[in-house]
Design a protein around this nucleic acid. Structure first.
Length: 587
RNA sequence: GGAGCCGUGGUGUAGGGGUUAACAUGCCGGCCUGUCAAGCCGGAGAUCGCGGGUUCAAUUCCCGUCGGCUCCGCCA
């Protein structure tokens, strides 16, 4: 076997005259009859080989026979390319290797799609042949970035005294949260493990155990429907620390991200990150994960229009709702049809309608201006800093509906108008989340973050009186409108934890049954602690400027949670089922 | 659970009630000693996702179904 002495990208002008051996795949082949060029690809990149009968007849014959994706070894001399034949698009484009020996390790069928960047091919096909898809340079780069970032995170945390500790994959199913993936126990027929949705309980127990600073690159599993940024198994960078408060965590994370952006992308990001309270985020951006790469803040007009004789606004306000508006800059030029599209969108998001004012040089034009006095209109225009050419969009309803509708329109228009600079990275902390929200379906409170999140100390009395007003010691990190991390200071006292469980509608028996080990642990000296977890795939997706986390995962699942390559999931034999004591019911 | 878009040679697309199903690229063969999206010539390659219906006739229209993608619900 011809063993390689160099990788493709290592071949430089400094090596001219040197004999080298290269191993790799035939990327492309250009056959001139009497002279054959082959671009040889390995993980490092591409180098041009020259097969010439003047150099070696036997090697030339092999050059005639190889085809795309054949795996070959070649030996030959490095030479400068003749003047005028350099390829500036290629990193190794000034040199080439004259092959005097060649060996075919393995032939290859013609691949079902091109092994090159920017392929326009059905993703199903890419996933069925993922090992070919990953040969494409852009996919290889994604996995390289993933490696570099993961390593940078580990290095950073190691430097700061964190221990990476593994926690079980086979664990206990607990209520609350996402649907569990279950694993049947053979030894305990009829009983099941659950795959972890996150290592939450274990990392807290590691704090009880005195580990003080923990992290893990942890695989997590959630049996919920998929999205471009949601896979049934995904990776979290999970962290937890003892004897700390919010500021310690936020500061550490900012330094950590500055480190990985520098290491991974060579970018310097600005710290500290801005912070928004949950209320502020909802009011100004209509979402708890605002995209700060563009302005376009929502403006509250409730007080301004309170007395206006316009039923759409006044009924909403009387019902305890709000009136807010979005200044769609430059959208005054929108056609009737485009405005109809916006209205349809607003209705889809739950609005009862969409009022608008077109700010023209001749003054405001709109079906609704007749309801307003000149003075009020002027105040509205001023509040929205309206200029000629703007389109003002109004929504009147309950606060949550208005936020959702205008927040969605804000994003939709940003996409349509290309307001977003794709090179921007805009981080923002969202803090002061409510501790609880009311679930209409289940008729009970549910934790906004999770049941182990500590309320703010001064809000603890509210748990007895108005639990929905209590704020959590929780924080989310948002990057470019994507939630990339979230965490909290945890409850570390049994009484408060029991109080939380009871607020969530868990009976004392259920709490003991599901979380007894946790409550018990709290009785053996639990330090105050808190942490955060990052969706590593999402962070990487944003860093690589991709649209889907599937591009950052070597072997992801389709939207129906299956793997087109292995054909998982699949039925299993009766023998296997019998051993597990499982009978399959067909729906 | 719901909505939308898509499904035609290996790949990406065009087409549209009766066609020899078109184009590009890839593939195979021939020519070709400086290409790098090599070029030129020739060739092979498609039960138009699947099932049913309407029709004299369906790849085309209708219904269903499967698969992929995006989104809503869901994701503490």
């Amino acid at each position: 076997m011809l063993k390689r002495t160099h990788s493709a990208r290592e071949i430089t002008p400094l090596m001219v005259g040197q004999k080298v051996v290269l191993n790799g795949w035939v990327d492309t082949r250009r056959d001139h009859g009497g002279l054959i060029f082959v671009d040889l690809r390995d993980r490092s990149g591409v180098i041009q080989l020259v097969f010439s009968p003047d150099v070696d007849a036997e090697a030339f014959r092999i050059g005639e026979q190889v085809r795309g994706e054949h795996v070959i070894a070649v030996a030959g001399q490095v030479r400068m390319r003749p003047e005028g034949t350099e390829n500036l698009n290629l990193e190794t484009g000034t040199v080439e290797v004259y092959v005097d020996r060649a060996e075919v390790f393995n032939k290859a069928k013609t691949p079902p799609f091109y092994i090159e960047d920017n392929v326009d091919v059905d993703e199903l096909l890419r996933l069925r042949y993922r090992y070919l898809d990953l040969r494409r340079p852009e996919m290889k780069r994604n996995l390289e970035l993933r490696h570099r970032i993961t390593k940078a995170l580990r290095d950073f945390l190691d430097d700061r005294g964190f221990l990476e500790i593994e926690t079980p994959m086979l664990t206990k199913s607990t209520p609350e949260g996402a649907r569990d993936y279950l694993v049947p126990s053979r030894v305990h027929p009829g009983e099941f493990y659950a795959l972890p949705q996150s290592p939450q309980l274990f990392k807290q127990l590691l704090m009880v155990a005195g580990m003080e600073k923990y992290f893990q690159v942890a695989r997590c599993f959630r049996d919920e429907d998929l999205r471009a940024d949601r896979q049934p198994e995904f990776t979290q960078l999970d962290m937890e620390m003892s004897f700390i408060d919010e500021e310690d965590i936020l500061g550490l994370v900012e330094a950590m991200l500055a480190h990985v952006f520098a290491q991974g992308l060579g970018l310097s990001i600005t710290t500290p990150f801005p912070r928004l309270t949950y209320r502020e985020a909802m009011r100004r951006y209509g979402t708890d994960k605002p995209d700060l790469r563009f302005g376009w803040e929502l403006v509250d007009l409730t007080d301004l229009v309170r007395e206006v004789d316009f039923a759409v606004f006044s009924t909403a306000i009387q019902a305890g709702g709000v009136v807010r508006a979005l200044n769609a800059r430059t959208c005054g030029s929108f056609s009737r049809r485009e405005i109809d599209d916006l209205t349809r969108s607003a209705l889809n998001w739950g609005a009862k309608g969409l009022a608008w004012i077109n700010v023209t040089a001749e003054g405001p034009k709109s079906p609704i201006v007749k309801f307003f006095s000149q003075a009020v209109i002027e105040q509205i225009l001023e509040a929205l800093e309206a200029r000629v050419g703007d389109l003002l969009l109004f929504c009147a309803d309950q606060e949550a509906v208005v936020a959702r509708v205008l927040g969605a329109l804000r994003l939709e228009l940003a996409g349509k108008l290309n307001l977003v600079n794709r090179d921007d990275f805009k981080f923002v902390w969202v803090v002061d989340f409510p501790l609880l929200e009311y679930d209409e379906e289940e008729k009970r409170y549910v934790a906004v973050h999770h049941p182990f999140t500590s309320p703010r100390e001064d809000d603890i009395p509210l748990l007895e009186t108005e639990p929905l007003k209590a704020r959590a010691r929780a924080y989310d990190l948002v990057l470019n409108g994507v939630e990339i991390g979230g965490g909290s200071i945890r409850i570390h006292q049994r009484e408060l934890q029991e109080k939380m469980f009871s607020l969530l509608g868990l009976s004392a028996e259920e709490a003991r049954d599901k979380f007894g080990f946790m409550l018990e642990a709290f009785e053996y000296g639990t330090p105050p602690h808190g942490g955060i977890a990052f969706g590593l795939d999402r962070l990487l997706m944003l860093m690589a400027r991709r649209e889907s986390i599937r591009d950052m995962i070597a072997f992801p699942k389709t939207q129906s949670a299956s793997c087109p390559m292995t054909m998982a999931p699949s039925p299993v034999s009766d023998k296997q089922l019998k051993e597990l004591g499982i009978k399959v019911r067909t729906r």
